[in-house]
Nucleic acid binder design. Structure first.
Lengths: 98, 98
DNA sequence: CTAATAATTAGATGATTGTCTAACTATCTA
DNA sequence: TAGATAGTTAGACAATCATCTAATTATTAG
C-alpha cells in the first residue's frame, strides 16, 4: 500500500496515469507530452510498474503500458473506509465489485 | 490535489488518519502510539492540515484533530475516474505536463 | 553483421523530506 | 505571578527522490 501511495504522490506519474486512461501507450508516446528526459519517464514507469499501477507489454521494439485498474480498487477501498469513519460497511450502492 | 497526494504518501500520516477514524483526538493522543517525537507528529499534522485532510480545534491547552471527509471525496473522485477509463466525465485536468 | 530505433540502466547531483533536539507560545491552575 | 502541561516553531542533518547525461540492452531492417 505504501508503494502505491508513494507512486501516486508525484504529479508527473499521475499525469502519466491520466494519459493511460485513453488506452495503452508506448514509453515513447508517454514521454512526448512532458518536458523531461526519456530516461526520467522510464524511471517513473518503473515506479508505477513496481506499485502495480500499470502493466507493460513489449511488442517488438516498443513497450506498451496500460492501467492496471485492479490496484486502483485497493486505494479506492482505503479511501472509502476513511469516509466511512470505520463503521462496518456494506458494499455501498455500487456493488459492481467486478 | 498534489498537496493531498503528497500528504497521503507517508505511512505515519496515513496511520494518523486511520486513528482519526475513531473520532477526534488531541495532538498528544495522536503522538502516543508512535515511537516518533512529538514535534515530528506535530509536523505531520501540519502537513495533513495544509492538505485539508484534517481539521483542528483548540479547546483549552489541547488541540483536537479530526478527519475532513470532504477532501477525501476529491481523491475518491480522482480514483474513480481512473477506473472509469475516461468515459463521459470531464477529466478535471489536475496538472500540467512538465 | 551493421546501423538505426526504442527503451532501460548506471552514476551523479541538487532538492525535498522525515526526523531529531532545543527553544518558544499558549493555556490552565495554585 | 509562577509553574506545569500541551503543542508548535526553528534549525540541523541524513536519507530519499526527481532529474540529467552517458552508456547499455533489445529489436528490427538492410
Amino acid at each position: 500500500m505504501n508503494q502505491i501511495f508513494s507512486a501516486l504522490s508525484d504529479p508527473t506519474r499521475r499525469a502519466i496515469l491520466t494519459l493511460l486512461r485513453q488506452g495503452e501507450k508506448s514509453a515513447g508516446e508517454l514521454a512526448e507530452p512532458f518536458h523531461i528526459s526519456k530516461p526520467s519517464i522510464s524511471h517513473h514507469l518503473q515506479t508505477l510498474k513496481a506499485a502495480g499501477l500499470v502493466l507493460d507489454d513489449r511488442r517488438g521494439q516498443q513497450i506498451f503500458y496500460s492501467l492496471n485498474t485492479t490496484v486502483f480498487q485497493d486505494v479506492l477501498s482505503w479511501m472509502l473506509e476513511m469516509t466511512d469513519r470505520g463503521e462496518s460497511r456494506q458494499v455501498s450502492r455500487e456493488e459492481d465489485n467486478q
